[in-house]
Design a protein around this nucleic acid. Structure first.
Lengths: 138, 138
DNA sequence: CGGTATCCGTCGTGATACTG
DNA sequence: CAGTATCACGACGGATACCG
């Protein structure tokens, strides 16, 4: 699979951004972009989506082991939010001991494309950012 | 201009995500994806980048008018952070009254592609999320 | 015009303990 | 195993006032 983002033609890129800014209201507080970030911008959502996207489904403690450092509380909280947003499906099996499986919904899967875009940019430009920070600090 | 994200082939998509998760350490706290989000995940950075991407350059108060709702303090703080990360250039002209222009660096421009990806996803799926929320609440 | 300085409320997050 | 409940802290962001 390859993810292609067309080489940005500076001028047209600005046009696209203008259209985005015109949309409903970015001047106001309700911008679609802010909406996504309010969803995945917290500390754990993205890592959870990444992990669920990599496996068909994961149980609570499997997920907890993979997302090292997350507390039980925050895993629960974050999963509930993702479930509420329709990004994650939660299936409880009536067994003892209890088994709960989490998987991405179609909506959740559609987000992974965006996440990969973010990741590609991040890995490509993290060095440049680090350099900029060093320059700015010095 | 068109931005194309290849239609996700479920299986290969999972492969890509696995590779991402293997990278240095997502288990630990230092994930490149988290890095980007720590940068643009705050309340105002994205809107500022969007606006600077749409215009060649903008002065402080021009920017302030466009990003309605932002306080003077937060505009300053956010711009300083973006400058430190090498995403925004700040030019001070020695005039009276003072004139300060902000513009995206090349690094900053490279981010707009990602931002547009985010926006496209957002505008496309916001209704689905709203529906999910309603379902979950009810 | 383009900032800084200070104060203060709120929210996200973590630690800990307990439960069906 | 997969949670919930409670508390407590720290960072983020807003309001206000002042400055070169």
């Amino acid at each position: 699979m390859n993810i292609t983002i067309a080489d940005p033609q500076p001028h047209t890129m600005a046009q696209v951004l203008k259209e985005i800014l015109l949309f409903p209201a970015n001047g106001a507080g309700i911008c679609p972009v802010r909406d996504v970030l309010d969803r995945i911008g917290d500390k754990w959502s993205l890592l959870i989506i990444l992990n669920l996207g990599a496996e068909e489904n994961l149980r609570f403690n499997e997920l907890r082991r993979r997302v090292a450092g997350i507390s039980q509380r925050m895993l629960t909280v974050t999963l509930r939010n993702l479930e509420a947003d329709g990004l994650v499906d939660r299936t409880v099996y009536a067994e003892v001991p209890p088994r709960v499986e989490y998987r991405l919904t179609d909506l959740g899967h559609s987000l992974t494309g965006v996440v990969i875009g973010l990741t590609n940019w991040a890995t490509a430009h993290t060095p440049a950012i680090a350099a900029a920070r060093a320059r700015f600090a010095g």
